[in-house]
């Protein structure tokens, strides 16, 4: 697949003929410098955006042929996200942030599952706290719990520890891998960090919109 964007100065190709297969249960790290196209690739893989050319299949669904709402439905049932800047809704409590994807999917047991997950990430006592009352590490743990609430087949994590100090970042990474293992989720991780990438089964290195190396 490829991704080009049209700017006033002309057309800019962000991804050049990328070809990639990720198997169920696999953990894959996409590494590269800023501007190498990692986040764009993640957005295409997760169905947040459409490729300019090529095809993207997620759990057998042709994302490139689906409308925004159809892709949303695929995300709701198959995908979990963990973002670099946590992206919690400030108006909702920790528990409500966790249960939001399940509620959108119409799951009536969202609350009990949310509480379970909050307990798993060690935040049972913070269930009714708002994001502004939580530390960065706690917010990212809430985001991780949210990512797993719909029992997604695949989890996309975009620089999950980049906004945290080293110790907290390490804890978050541990938690992410631990839960991923427990739930048997496929993990696609975008990171600058080679150390974090090495914890994944495969590492794909990107530069200027292309894969330059792949390590197992």
């Amino acid at each position: 697949m490829a991704k080009r964007v049209n700017l006033t100065e002309g057309s800019l190709t962000i991804l050049h003929d990328i070809s990639l297969t990720i198997n169920r249960g696999e953990s894959v790290a996409i590494v590269g410098a800023s501007g190498s196209g990692k986040s764009t690739l993640l957005s295409l893989l997760a169905g947040l955006d459409q490729p300019t050319a090529g095809e993207v299949y997620l759990a057998g669904q042709p994302l490139h042929q689906l409308s925004e709402d159809q892709r949303a439905a695929v995300r709701a049932s198959q995908v979990g996200f963990v973002f670099q800047s946590f992206l919690l809704l400030p108006a909702l409590t920790a528990l409500e942030n966790v249960t939001l994807p399940a509620e959108l999917a119409g799951d009536r047991r969202a609350r009990s599952r949310g509480l379970e997950l909050l307990a798993l990430v060690g935040l049972s006592e913070r269930a009714d706290f708002y994001p502004s009352q939580l530390s960065g590490g706690e917010q990212q743990r809430v985001a991780i719990a949210r990512a797993f609430i719909t029992r997604p087949a695949i989890l996309f994590a975009d620089e999950p520890s980049a906004n945290l100090d080293a110790v907290t970042g390490q804890r978050i990474e541990d938690l992410l891998f631990e839960l991923n293992q427990q739930q048997g989720t496929t993990l696609v991780l975008v990171t600058h960090s080679d150390a974090l990438a090495k914890r994944c089964q495969r590492q794909l290195k990107m530069q200027a919109g292309r894969f330059i190396t792949e390590e197992q």
């Binding site: 949303a72 995300r75 995908v79 996200f81 939001l100 959108l104």
Partner: peptide
Amino acid sequence: SQAVAIIKALGATTQQ
């Protein structure tokens, strides 16, 4: 706009 993007990324349709 950011909140809407989050909700949509988490699987909400435009209708929702």
